[in-house]
Write a protein that binds this DNA or RNA. Structure first.
Lengths: 177, 177
DNA sequence: TCGATCTATATCGAAGCTATATAGGTCCGG
DNA sequence: CCGGACCTATATAGCTTCGATATAGATCGA
């Protein structure tokens, strides 16, 4: 699931500029579980153009760089669907927080507490953001994905509030040894 | 949280070769939520050696490449702890499955069902793997992380079994339009 | 006994991310 | 009403990381 494929998918829902594609990851239905940086989106769009999977039109703007609006072509749409018919790559969840918890015994107790606080706040923020969005206007797939996200964040919050004491106490005990 | 930091962390728990570090991600307590490839581990260990954060000893083996066993130095231990005291990078969860679900309406119903089946099987496998491991022999941090993993996988499985019908039906309805 | 899988290191090319450059616009607070 | 922060918008250089591949003998099951 490379950045080119992700861009193609987003363009099946409508034309967009590189900038708009990036924003979609942050703001709307595509958030969580997919992401890409400008440094990969712009080259991806150029290459998709060369390959004939998308077309571009430049909209001149006064005193600003031209908006380059990308549209998916029929070939691009076919290629995207074909890529969804192949076996999907596995999920990758990389969590510095979880890794750090493995080393709680090396850290001052206050730092472990701080990490937990920060992470919990982060998860609450993501959950709130998902709930903010109007579920009424979402497509079937988007509703499903939003529900998936809610389930994951809620489970994490529940686990952390139920079990944070264990690691904080354990950690205090180990540090005292 | 780059590969160098991850390697340092693992070496705080004991000496290891590059190969063994990689195995730890697959088999044991470090699994899920962290990972690195050989292509990044070996260069990381070389650079850590140059920087004085780890030391190496070569154990000659008959008719095999030498085992290069890495040990963390006091400087390495300090650097690792310092990196845990700085703000942690955010989690990154990239899920081709979740992305694909956003486009269920473009796919044949059988494919959507197949994706769900595959993903559910994958999550069950990860959950089973976590439960296989003897929780008795784990450190406090490892127990906490294993519990975290179980909570996440269980929530995903629960959500998918409860809601898969929605997206499969919705998808069938849209395809029929 | 033959192929598959495991131990073990290593590198190359491709992919992706971070930080930065550019450049004007908007919006809010002081 | 001015300044700073943030937004739109594209783009690239450099570093990091990944995936695939090379090497090579050991072990183990069919």
């Amino acid at each position: 699931m490379d950045v080119r494929t992700i861009c193609l998918g987003i363009l099946t829902r409508g034309d967009a500029t590189g900038y708009e594609i990036k924003k979609l990851f942050e703001d709307d239905g595509y958030q969580h579980f997919v992401e890409a940086s400008f440094g990969s989106i712009y080259p991806a769009l150029n290459r998709l153009t060369d390959e004939g999977y998308v077309s571009v039109r430049s909209e001149a703007q006064e005193k600003r760089p031209d908006r380059k609006v990308y549209s998916i072509t029929p070939a691009g749409r076919s290629a995207f669907i074909a890529s969804l018919l192949k076996p999907l790559p596995e999920d990758r969840h990389r969590s510095p927080f979880v890794f750090a918890m493995l080393f709680a015994d090396l850290l001052p107790q206050s730092r472990v507490g701080g990490m937990l606080d920060d992470y919990i706040a982060q998860m609450q923020g993501k959950l709130a953001h998902l709930n903010d969005h109007d579920t009424a206007c979402l497509s079937g797939g988007e509703k499903f994905v939003a529900g998936f996200g809610r389930a994951v964040y809620a489970a994490i919050l529940e686990f952390l509030t139920a079990h944070r004491a264990e690691i904080e106490e354990q950690q205090a005990a180990q540090a005292a040894e």
